[in-house]
Design a protein around this nucleic acid. Sequence first.
DNA 1: TACAAATATAGCAATATAACTATATGAAAA
DNA 2: TTTTCATATAGTTATATTGCTATATTTGTA
Lengths: 95, 95
Amino acid sequence: MFRALAQEKRLQVLSWLKAPAAHFPPQVDGDLIRDGVCVLRIAEKLGVKQPTATRHLQILADAGLVTATRIGKWTFFKRNETAIGRLKSELIEKM
Amino acid sequence: MFRALAQEKRLQVLSWLKAPAAHFPPQVDGDLIRDGVCVLRIAEKLGVKQPTATRHLQILADAGLVTATRIGKWTFFKRNETAIGRLKSELIEKM
DNA sequence: TACAAATATAGCAATATAACTATATGAAAA
DNA sequence: TTTTCATATAGTTATATTGCTATATTTGTA
């Protein structure tokens, strides 16, 4: 989990996803809030290519910090607040 | 800071230093609690050579998680609870 | 002053990470 | 069914990290 957060870009994504509508343009398919943000939008905003963004998002997902939802040809990512909450208390005791 | 914690060995050290007396033998010079634990003891317990332990401890120190105290020829490391407390609340809001 | 002990630094090898391009896969549209 | 679009995977390269050994530095002691 700390490894997942040990990268400015991933911290950045996690922060943007707190308020998707404030950081990403409206989406035609897939609601920003309910479903999450599409990979290409995140890649653009991060300033990296799509495969790189996908990799970062997989790392965040493996750590349980975000969840992926595939709708049609899009994959949307959003924060997993439940897991993040659990991880917060866990790391509080670990530190 | 997350990078400093993104390594099992450094997390381990930070955890041991919560209760130095429970994890390290008594020291002749430098009190375990007041001054901290000597580098060689930490290296032994980690199962790495002294320069490697020194490097890990420097990384923890750079992140502000521990402080070094030189007494004579020994350098003792202990947790910086004040800084750790600040970092905790900071990361809580960052996540 | 010379020597010994503890730690710090330099330099190197192995591995991990992050970026890219090229390509494969999955799903919708023509 | 072919094409197209979005994402995933494979493979490569550059850089960062982690470990080591050798050596320098700092400090106490003979």
